[in-house]
Amino acid sequence: MLRDDLRTLWTEPRPPDAAARVWRDWALLGAGLGGVVLEATLREDVVWRPVAVVFAVWLCVLPLWRRTRPLATVTLAFGSMILLQVASLIAAPREPVGLYTGLVVLVLVYALPRWGSGREIVLGGAVILGAFVLSVVTDETPAGEQVAGFVFLFLPGLIGAAVRFLATARERQLEQVRSREREQLARELHDTVAHHVSAMVIRAQAGRVLAGTDPAAAVEALEEVEEEGARTLEEMRAMVAALRDRGAGAELAPPAGVADLERLVRAPGGRLRVDLKLDSALESLPPAVDAAVYRIVQESVTNAMRHAVNATEVVVRVTAERHTVRVSVRDNGQRTGRGRDGYGLAGLRERAALLGGRLQAGPGSDQGWHVEAELPRGRTESGAHPRPRR
């Protein structure tokens, strides 16, 4: 089992969402260089001052690449520390060489398990451990201080590993939410298409019966329509049955849509008044878009009921244009800075994207929380607009 765990760690890839640089990198660099200047100017006990200053500047610059090159930055930083320790061991200075600003290397220790692959974590950890062992061998420090130094050095790495685990777990949960949303959409599309295909089969059967005069060509055509329709229906049922969770019963009732929004917002138990206004041109929406509008309003109103601070009203607007449907849900609570979407909004964003639309959610410019969605009335190809229903 241990061998399998080590093999899994060795083959672990890097996290996919590593940013090259953000503003915090430049702030860290500025703070580090400022610390170097202050130490080099004010401290009188600096040993090998030019070497210590250059070394500290080197350590301050390396974190700029800590996310994209975690192993390289750790190797360069702690490798140079090993070389400096060897040089100081040969020259035997009175005090340790270096500036306190060199503690910036702890950022690299954090970044290694946070952004590195499994192979990089193992190799980089070996380099860090080697530098620590060399310092223990060369410095005559009590055992208690050595243990404290070990904990101090590797604690940022444990924090980085914990942060990575939490981020991975959240991403896994988000992917499960997206998968459930895709499954729900597939179920709704299946129910809709199955209805039309079933009607096609019935009409084909009727056409064959009505061909009383036995026109051979018509009968053959009707038989082909019937056969193809039945085959399509069977294959589609098999495909969606594989997508569905076997533990959850299949929903045979048609999905809720725009026509059900009045009943949704009038449901008892809500602590906020819901102001709902719908366009009159929403009757002919495609079933998938119709269900998506309902789900967006349902999730947004539910979130407002649960999380809106000091809100008294939720304003819901669903407007139809020639080629798009727009959904807007806003509450009048205090403006909040909720930084990231919950799993419900992540699923709705996935659904909107699958339909070719988009969804945005965030604090409003003046107050409350706003959800804005734009969905196409029907899928188009090559930029052509969907044909209106007859």
Score class of each variant (00 low, 15 high):
residue 302 T to S: 13
residue 294 Y to L: 14
residue 292 A to C: 14
residue 297 V to Q: 06
residue 282 L to N: 08
residue 292 A to I: 11
residue 286 P to T: 13
residue 305 M to G: 14
residue 305 M to I: 10
residue 300 S to N: 00
residue 283 E to M: 06
residue 303 N to V: 01
residue 290 D to R: 09
residue 287 P to T: 08
residue 309 V to S: 08
residue 311 A to R: 09
residue 300 S to Q: 00
residue 292 A to Q: 09
residue 293 V to Y: 08
residue 295 R to E: 09
residue 309 V to I: 13
residue 300 S to E: 00
residue 299 E to S: 13
residue 283 E to R: 13
residue 304 A to W: 01
residue 296 I to W: 04
residue 287 P to L: 07
residue 311 A to V: 11
residue 292 A to K: 06
residue 290 D to W: 11
residue 310 N to P: 02
residue 294 Y to Q: 10
residue 308 A to N: 02
residue 299 E to T: 13
residue 292 A to V: 10
residue 293 V to C: 10
residue 296 I to M: 08
residue 298 Q to R: 15
residue 282 L to R: 08
residue 285 L to R: 09
residue 310 N to L: 14
residue 281 A to L: 09
residue 288 A to M: 01
residue 304 A to R: 01
residue 294 Y to N: 12
residue 281 A to I: 04
residue 306 R to F: 00
residue 302 T to C: 02
residue 297 V to S: 06
residue 298 Q to G: 11
residue 304 A to T: 02
residue 281 A to R: 14
residue 294 Y to A: 13
residue 289 V to C: 06
residue 311 A to N: 11
residue 284 S to N: 07
residue 293 V to H: 07
residue 306 R to V: 02
residue 303 N to I: 01
residue 298 Q to W: 14
residue 311 A to L: 11
residue 304 A to N: 05
residue 291 A to T: 04
residue 291 A to Q: 05
residue 302 T to F: 09
residue 293 V to R: 07
residue 292 A to P: 07
residue 308 A to R: 02
residue 307 H to D: 07
residue 286 P to D: 15
residue 295 R to S: 04
residue 294 Y to F: 15
residue 303 N to K: 05
residue 305 M to Q: 15
residue 288 A to I: 02
residue 284 S to K: 04
residue 310 N to R: 15
residue 283 E to P: 01
residue 294 Y to M: 14
residue 302 T to E: 13
residue 286 P to L: 13
residue 306 R to I: 01
residue 303 N to D: 05
residue 311 A to S: 13
residue 299 E to R: 08
residue 301 V to I: 07
residue 286 P to G: 12
residue 299 E to Y: 05
residue 300 S to G: 00
residue 289 V to L: 05
residue 307 H to W: 13
residue 298 Q to D: 15
residue 302 T to L: 11
residue 293 V to K: 07
residue 292 A to E: 10
residue 287 P to N: 05
residue 295 R to P: 00
residue 302 T to P: 00
residue 283 E to A: 15
residue 303 N to Q: 03
residue 301 V to G: 03
residue 307 H to M: 10
residue 311 A to I: 10
residue 299 E to V: 14
residue 297 V to Y: 06
residue 296 I to R: 04
residue 288 A to R: 01
residue 310 N to G: 11
residue 283 E to G: 14
residue 307 H to V: 10
residue 298 Q to M: 14
residue 299 E to D: 12
residue 283 E to K: 10
residue 302 T to G: 08
residue 295 R to Q: 09
residue 301 V to L: 07
residue 284 S to D: 14
residue 306 R to Y: 00
residue 291 A to I: 03
residue 296 I to N: 04
residue 304 A to L: 01
residue 287 P to K: 05
residue 282 L to M: 09
residue 308 A to S: 13
residue 283 E to V: 12
residue 305 M to L: 15
residue 284 S to L: 07
residue 306 R to K: 06
